[in-house]
Simulated assay, not measured.
Amino acid sequence: MLRSLGRERRERRERRERRGRRRAAAVDAEASPPRAGRTTSWCRCTSLLAASGASGGSSCPDAPDRVWFPAGRIFERMHRREPHPPRSVFGEQRCHPRRPAYCRTHYRGGFPMRKVTYSMSTSLDGYIVGPDGTFDWTTPDAEVFRFWIDDIRNVGVHLLGRRLYEAMLYWETADQETALDEADAEWTALWNPLPKVVFSTTLSAVQGNARLASGGLGEEIERLRAEPGEGDIAIGGATLAAEASALGLIDEYQVMVCPVLVGGGIPFFPRTERLVTLELVETRTFKSGIVYLRHRVVR
């Protein structure tokens, strides 16, 4: 009796093992790579089922109609989809490849966030001010000045350091002291009413449509991005831009490269040991030999 009971249990166990091997063979056959000549390719997804064993759906839109898997376990599912070239991220195959994203595509409340730009004139060797403190070689001609006039129309607020703010104070009273030509008058009409935020630890008051920053650079930019408004958030000044770059806040670098070498001074780009991938989105060459380059930061 005990021997027959043991034999029966052994036979049931062998039958269960045979069924398990057949089932595993069927799953392996279904999950095997496509043979030569097939037009379909394979995509790998990994999902975690609920502990209750409910066979819920997958986040992948290419999921097949029926997939067998053991309930309540982490499982690896192979299924077919349209052919695509192999892609990998850190050695792991993904169903949907990761694409580059830009700050411009970040949304808050359903609207695109305002991008942060850093734009200045530089020498060919990358300096905005020479070793002697001068930058008269950046004085624009009529064609370049017209470009800056058109460009400032796209700015909603300008962030400045103390030195750049003091250099631009000339325009606050330029129309009162001298007779301006048409281009200067147009620039003054655009620049003076433009909201400005000045970052300084020595100034106690500012003039015109400007205010002193009430917080750090990162806090101010987040506040400005959260406020309703149009136009870019422009940054002027190498020191301020270096801090914004270190925080990863700059979305676009806009460089007006002048055909001159100065050999030293204040660099346009911050000297940080950090890789920043850029995408060239616009370039323009002027008759004077100045070249405008606009690069977008790839996120």
Rank of each mutant, 00 (worst) to 15 (best):
R3H: 14
S4D: 13
G6P: 10
E8I: 14
E8D: 15
R12K: 12
R13T: 08
E14G: 15
E17Q: 01
E17L: 12
R18A: 04
R23Y: 01
R23Q: 04
A24H: 12
D28P: 00
E30M: 06
A31Q: 08
A31H: 10
R35G: 15
R35L: 12
R35M: 11
G37R: 06
S41Q: 03
C43A: 06
C45R: 07
T46Y: 00
A50D: 06
S52I: 05
A54M: 03
G56N: 03
G56P: 03
S59E: 15
P64E: 04
R66V: 11
R66G: 00
W68R: 05
P70V: 14
A71R: 08
A71D: 06
A71K: 07
G72Y: 06
R73G: 10
R73L: 13
F75P: 00
E76C: 05
M78V: 07
H79L: 08
R80I: 11
R80Y: 13
R81A: 14
E82P: 08
P83Y: 06
H84D: 11
P86S: 02
P86I: 00
S88A: 03
V89I: 08
R94T: 15
C95K: 10
P97Y: 07
P97S: 09
P97N: 11
C103G: 05
G109R: 02
G109T: 02
R114C: 07
R114W: 10
S119E: 10
S121K: 10
S121W: 05
T122N: 00
L124K: 03
V129D: 03
G130V: 01
G133N: 08
F135D: 05
F135H: 13
W137T: 03
E143W: 02
R146K: 05
F147W: 08
F147V: 01
D150A: 14
R153F: 10
G156V: 01
V157K: 04
L159Y: 02
L159S: 03
L159E: 02
L160H: 02
L160G: 02
E166N: 07
A167H: 11
M168K: 12
M168D: 09
L169F: 02
Y170P: 00
Y170H: 11
W171Y: 04
W171D: 01
A174E: 02
D175S: 07
A183P: 06
A185F: 15
A185K: 13
T188W: 12
L190F: 14
W191N: 11
N192P: 09
P193W: 15
K196M: 12
V198F: 05
S200M: 08
S200F: 05
L203G: 10
Q207Y: 00
A213Q: 01
S214F: 07
E219G: 09
I221H: 08
R225W: 03
E227F: 00
G229F: 04
E230R: 11
G231C: 01
I233L: 13
G236T: 07
G236W: 13
G237Y: 10
A238I: 04
A238V: 05
T239F: 04
L240T: 10
A241V: 06
S245R: 11
S245N: 13
A246E: 09
E252I: 07
Y253L: 13
Q254D: 12
V257L: 13
V257R: 07
P259G: 14
V262T: 10
V262P: 05
F269C: 15
P270V: 12
P270A: 10
R271H: 14
E273D: 14
T277S: 03
L278W: 01
E279F: 00
L280D: 03
L280A: 14
L280I: 13
T283N: 04
K287Y: 09
V298P: 01
